[in-house]
């Protein structure tokens, strides 16, 4: 199987894009998250440079649970473990939950914008170039 995947990179994509990301309507959730990641990456090209923090031992306290959580959250983890959902919401339920996730994206964007506005105003008040 691994040899086949090495010969055909498309199979890696098929493996990663599997499980709940391929079945409608839960696929809608994956699409919303992907659109959010794309908007985040695109926005990073014109947003202010963030202050770089070196990785410290202290930061591992939050990096480790985020990394472990991200691995568990990936659809392929559930697929590898042969997991079945504990419940099914049905189409309407998933559409309502997808609306909540989309609203979350809105909160995130407004938060980012407010944060940027605050920093620009603070830098302006302190007479230093904008950026954080």
């Amino acid at each position: 199987m691994v040899r086949d995947m090495l010969n055909d990179p498309g199979q890696w994509f098929a493996f990663a894009w599997s499980g709940w990301t391929t079945t409608w309507p839960t696929q809608l959730l994956a699409i919303i998250w992907i659109l959010w990641v794309i908007s985040w990456v695109v926005a990073s090209f014109w947003s202010g440079q963030t202050k770089k923090h070196v990785m410290t031992w202290d930061s591992l306290r939050y990096r480790f649970p985020i990394l472990a959580g991200a691995i568990l959250f990936l659809p392929l983890t559930g697929k590898v473990l042969g997991e079945k959902p504990l419940w099914q919401f049905g189409n309407l339920g998933i559409y309502v939950l997808a609306c909540l996730v989309a609203c979350r994206d809105l909160v995130h964007m407004v938060g980012e914008n407010s944060s940027r506005t605050f920093l620009v105003e603070r830098d302006h008040a302190q007479g230093r170039p904008s950026g954080h």
Binding site: W20, G69, G93, L97, R104, V107
Partner: peptide, 28 residues
């Protein structure tokens, strides 16, 4: 927003790993 989105997605997917992953990301 990020925590709310993760938790809602975990509940919507309904698998133990997705929900545990969402809780761990929220904790982080």
């Amino acid at each position: 927003g990020l925590i709310a989105g993760m938790l809602v997605t975990g509940v919507a997917v309904g698998t133990v790993t997705a929900m545990l992953g969402a809780v761990l990301i929220s904790l982080g």
